[in-house]
């Protein structure tokens, strides 16, 4: 009788277990980024197989990569990591103007990067189906571009929330988690740019 009454008190599925050491938001982002690193690893494996194992020329003969434009774009994206860090530091110190300015600048820099990359694709002169090198080039840079889109979506939410008065020096998880993701996106671009464009 008693057991039956206890069973009737709780409705729906059991409560999710929460770690005592890691916040759910951090845990989710941590697992997501780890899975993303593996996805990038698969694409880099294809790149190294074509270029190192099979010793193919890079880029494919008759094609050229716009290193100068990509270099400019790299500077744009990497500077967004600094503005992101500035925004979170401002949030921790209660500087609302710097928080909003930092998040908005980060978003605009990321959007500029994406715009320049799409423009680069239009004028490249080769397609993903042109050669194995082309497939890997579009695969790696496109995969990274998709991550920039995800990052921009997170940043858009954070920016809108900042302009609506959210985030305090004590509660700024909504900036911290997108910040970690944004630095991950920038770290991946450093590796992609170095291997694909420079070396």
């Amino acid at each position: 009788m008693e057991a039956a009454s206890i069973a009737h008190e709780h409705h729906g599925p059991p409560e999710a277990n929460r770690s005592s050491t890691v916040d759910p938001q951090f845990l989710g982002m941590l697992l997501f980024i780890i899975s993303e690193i593996m996805v990038f690893g698969a694409f880099f494996t294809a790149y190294f197989f074509i270029r190192v194992v099979n010793d193919n020329p890079w880029p494919a003969p008759g094609t050229e990569l716009p290193v100068a434009i990509a270099g400019f774009n790299t500077a744009v994206l990497l500077s967004s990591s600094f503005t992101m860090h500035w925004a979170l530091t401002a949030a921790k110190h209660g500087n609302r103007f710097a928080l909003k300015a930092g998040l908005l600048t980060t978003f605009l820099l990321g959007a500029t990067f994406l715009f320049v990359q799409i423009n680069e694709y239009i004028h490249l002169g080769f397609a993903p189906y042109s050669s194995a090198q082309g497939s890997v080039f579009y695969g790696l840079t496109g995969l990274h571009g998709a991550h920039v889109v995800i990052g921009l979506t997170l940043l858009l939410f954070a920016t809108v929330r900042a302009f609506r008065g959210h985030f305090t020096p004590e509660k700024h998880m909504g900036v911290e988690v997108p910040g970690i993701y944004w630095h991950f996106v920038d770290v991946m671009w450093v590796i992609v740019f170095t291997t694909v464009y420079v070396l």
């Binding site: 951090f26 941590l30 990591s81 992101m84 860090h85 900036v175 910040g179 991950f184």
Partner: peptide, 9 residues
């Protein structure tokens, strides 16, 4: 780098 934004930076 996954512990906080400061460490990621």
């Amino acid at each position: 780098p996954l512990r906080s934004e400061a460490e990621a930076f």
